[in-house]
Design a protein around this nucleic acid. Structure first.
Length: 484
RNA sequence: GGCGGCAUAGCCAAGUGGUAAGGCAGAGGUCUGCAAAACCUCCAUCCUCCGGUUCAAAUCCGGAUGCCGCCUCCA
């Protein structure tokens, strides 16, 4: 497959270092708060990448770490009057709960920073030995950026350019403003570990260098776009300065979730947690919404766009339900069948796979899935063709494709009737609908209809519509749903 | 200020040299007591603007404008 590499700023053929095997390391969360949509997107992007690589018969080892000791966690613990370990554990658990609900597969390894303290210290010592880092009187250890000539190769910045904007916080003892902390001496009340430089704790960047070390060289290192600088740049510097090897061949970065064209972030306070969303929408709707755009593009989150996603999603499941009904029949006729329809179905199945091979283009892939839906629907409505063996073959292919969409995208894999019922319940809850009251009106309407009193029947239908309820009259009786 | 990204119909969104996927909304039609749902059909001579390269550009190059991100913690 082709994959965009942030390092070269180009789409490249993805070829694993070891044939048939892929190591992926993705920067996970710092466990100090609930995850928001942005975290969901990042997790989803790499979830689909891993699924797709596995479907391409590659043996994937997927690592996603947790940062469980950090300034923010310590601050949060202090604010909540809790132990920092408890804070970290709480939010790691929440991460798992949220991601499980979204159908994000668990990583093969989920290292925690606090389990790698020894490795981080070893890495510091190695860099010190090689004169690529220095310890200060107060017990901090800094990386010497000037000792790594390639510094800036990922973010496209040169140390000289960075120099102008760099600053030194009060109390820091850096030799150079660009240098960054590998190890921080502990302040009173903070968690600490014994070290050759006194009591202290690791800097953020060194954590990932230590946790990814067992898997070098990585085929793919991933994370959000905002991690490129300084986090990933520093990670490269640490790892490559210490081991004289390549940290990762491909750097893959996902774009942001935005709100009103602005980045969703903690600092702007414009974030929506995954939990907030799942109170209003089904997990699969969020998945669909996020995967309907290319992973590197920004995505604007809003209720309106989620509602729109829901409508498209409903259409797909309706079609799936209809196809299942059609397939349950057993009276297929050997009629002449237009070969271009069959060829089109075959082409669309292939196009779906090709889209994912092209830099994980889930948006394009989904476009092909819906084009296939269109083809199937038209067949379903064709009174003659729908009973033909040619149509049956296309229906079967459609069903098989849906299985593929489920395997790789985690979409459209539910039992249609079950999903549709869940979706309806979800919309009823969201609309704050009094189901009992609706049923009462429907009973009165059914009575009016028995009496062929259409004026009364229509008045009741208008009354319901005013409450946001849409009624349909079907051969099986009245059906209702939330309007829109 | 430095570095980077994006600009496609009312909206969302694919498309990286060969003449604009898909979705939502909308219009007309079939169906219906009337509706709704479903299905069918239609809906960008054109891809922010100005130059250039080419037989050929939304796609490549140069410039302009607008928006966004990173440079401090951030998926």
């Amino acid at each position: 497959m082709k994959l965009y590499n942030s390092l070269t700023r180009a789409k490249e053929d993805f070829i694993p270092v070891t044939p048939g095997k892929v190591n992926i390391y993705v920067c996970g969360i710092t466990a100090y708060d609930l995850c928001h949509v942005g975290h969901a997107r990042s997790a989803l992007v790499f979830d689909v990448l891993v699924r797709h690589l596995r479907r391409s018969n590659l043996e994937v080892f997927f690592v996603r770490n947790f940062t469980d000791v950090d300034d923010k966690i310590i601050k949060r613990a202090h604010d909540d009057g809790r132990d920092w370990r408890e804070v970290a554990e709480t939010y790691m658990r929440c991460f798992h709960e949220d991601m499980d609900r979204l159908g994000v597969l668990r990583a093969d390894a989920e290292p925690k920073a606090t389990d790698f303290i020894k490795e981080m210290q070893d890495l510091c010592e190695r860099l010190l030995r090689e004169n690529k880092a220095y310890a200060t009187a107060s017990g901090d250890v800094y990386f010497k950026v000037r000792a790594f000539p390639e510094y800036g190769k990922l973010s496209g910045r040169s140390p000289d350019e960075l120099r102008a904007g760099a600053r030194v916080a009060p109390g820091e003892e850096k030799h150079d403003p660009l240098d960054f902390a590998l190890w921080k001496s502990a302040k009173p009340g903070e968690p600490f570990w014994e070290s050759p430089w006194g009591k202290g704790r690791p800097g953020w960047h060194i954590e990932c260098s230590a946790m990814s070390a067992p898997y070098l060289p990585l085929d793919i290192h991933g994370g959000g776009l905002d991690l490129i600088f300084p986090h990933h740049e520093n990670e490269i510097a640490q790892t490559e300065a210490a081991c004289a090897c390549t940290l990762a061949r491909f750097w893959v970065h996902n774009g942001f979730v935005q709100v009103n064209a602005e980045k969703m972030s903690k600092s702007l306070g414009n974030f929506t947690t995954i939990r907030d969303i799942l109170e209003r929408y089904l997990p699969e709707t969020l998945r669909f919404f996020l995967l309907a755009k290319h992973y590197r593009s920004p995505v604007d989150y809003s209720f309106d766009s989620m509602d729109e996603t829901e409508r498209a999603q409903r259409r797909m499941y309706h079609a799936l339900a209809e196809v299942d009904v059609a397939l349950a029949r057993d009276a297929w006729k050997a009629l002449p069948f237009p070969s271009d329809r069959s060829a089109e179905a075959e082409r669309l199945e292939d196009a779906f796979a090709r889209a994912l091979d092209d830099d994980l283009n889930t948006a394009s892939a989904l476009g092909h899935a819906f084009a296939f839906l269109k083809l199937v629907k038209s067949l379903l409505d064709d009174k003659k063709l729908r009973n033909s063996e040619g149509a049956r073959d296309i229906f079967l292919r459609f069903r098989r494709c849906a299985g593929e969409w489920h395997d790789v995208l985690g979409l459209f894999g539910a039992e249609p009737a079950v999903f549709l019922a869940e979706l309806r319940n979800c919309r009823i809850t969201r609309g704050n609908i009094d189901t009992a009251a609706v049923e009462t009106i429907l009973e009165r309407r059914a009575a009016a209809r028995r009496d062929k009193d259409f004026a009364a029947s229509d008045a009741l239908r208008d009354e319901l519509f005013a409450k946001g309820i849409e009624v349909r009259d079907t051969p099986q009786g009245q059906e209702w749903d939330i309007a829109g």
